[in-house]
Computed example of a mutant assay.
Amino acid sequence: MPGQRAGAGLSTVRQFEAAGFRAWPAAAVHYDGTWVVRLTAGHPAKRLNSVNPLDPRDVHDLPERVMRAGRRFEAYGRPLTFRMSPLAGAPLERHLEGEGWIRFGDSLVMQADLDNAAVNGAMDQIPLKDMGRFVTATMTTHATDATLRAGLSEIIGAIQPEVGLFALERGDEPLTTAICVHEGDLAGLFEVATAEAERGKGHGRRLVLSALKWARLRGARRAWLQVEADNPAALRLYRGLGFTELYSYHYRRRPEG
């Protein structure tokens, strides 16, 4: 079951889910009741290609609605995927479980107070203005397939809140990259990655702190992020920076074959 940590009521979950939709926008968004169907032809990321239920009470006509969502995903050439946050609710979880849907991609939403010594003492860094340069850098640190360049550029270009594109480089060699999305009192971190040969050297910590300082100087008070639960290196980094778990989510997909 997706879970909530102490103090994370459904209203808080809704706040962060909505912030996530705005900060990492899908190319197409459809609604079926309170289900948000997000689809992106240019990028296969699960967050951008998933059904996101937003009310645990909205569980009527489940077989028919699942079928409708499946037709939309089929038109995009994507496997039908549900993203199960605490807003999905137990009845939908039981329905998918009963139909044999596979659970995968367990993830955590974490938050941190930005008024702390580590952020205050971070190195000032100006975000990149050249999106093409940033996309090249982040595709290198993530070892991303070159065919996804256009799709990633489209996603970043569609972000509506203020966005900071950060890269730590050695000459022309990108070491670490991150995206920081500032909206009101929130600063969301996305696409944080360090080149494989440069991991464990403190580059990620340095760049993340600089990105958070940039957002704090613009009025952000809380940082947040989404991270896969089976990524121990990232969890060590974020917990070391004061991030704590707010709630969890996972994905469901029909078994292949």
Rank of each mutant, 00 (worst) to 15 (best):
G42M: 05
P25E: 05
D55V: 06
T12D: 13
D32V: 07
V66N: 00
A75Q: 05
E17H: 08
Y31A: 13
R47K: 12
P44Y: 12
L10F: 11
L48Y: 04
K46S: 15
D61L: 01
A28E: 15
P53K: 01
P56C: 01
R57A: 10
R57Q: 08
G42T: 09
L54T: 12
N52K: 09
Y76E: 10
M67P: 11
R57T: 09
E17T: 12
D61H: 03
R71T: 11
V13C: 10
T40Y: 05
S11Y: 10
A26L: 12
F21I: 15
R72Q: 14
L10K: 06
R14A: 07
T12E: 14
E17C: 13
E17P: 13
F21E: 15
L10R: 02
V59M: 14
L48T: 04
V36P: 02
G33W: 06
D58F: 02
E74V: 10
W35G: 12
P25H: 03
N52Q: 13
R72A: 14
G77R: 00
G42N: 02
V29M: 06
D32P: 02
N49F: 08
R14W: 08
F73E: 07
L54R: 10
R38N: 09
A27S: 13
S11I: 13
D61M: 00
E17G: 13
T34I: 11
A23W: 09
A18L: 15
L54A: 09
L10M: 05
R22V: 09
P44E: 14
P53H: 03
K46L: 13
G42I: 10
P53C: 00
T12F: 07
A45R: 05
R38A: 12
G70K: 08
N52I: 05
A69I: 02
S11Q: 14
S11L: 15
V37D: 04
V37M: 09
Y76F: 15
M67K: 15
R57V: 07
Y76I: 07
L54V: 06
R38W: 04
E17R: 08
A27R: 09
R72M: 13
G9L: 05
A18K: 14
W35R: 00
H43S: 13
G77N: 08
H43C: 11
G70I: 02
F73L: 04
D61C: 03
Y76W: 08
T34F: 10
F73A: 05
G9M: 03
G33Q: 03
D58K: 00
V36C: 06
M67C: 09
P56F: 01
R65Q: 04
D32R: 07
H30N: 05
L10S: 06
R68I: 05
V29H: 07
P63Q: 02
L10Y: 02
T34P: 11
F16L: 14
P63T: 00
H30K: 07
A45N: 00
G70Y: 08
G33M: 03
W24N: 06
R65H: 01
D32F: 02
R65L: 00
A45E: 06
P56L: 04
R68H: 09
V59H: 11
M67Y: 10
V59P: 07
A8N: 10
V59N: 13
S50R: 05
A26F: 12
G42P: 06
A41H: 11
V37H: 03
E74C: 04
A23S: 15
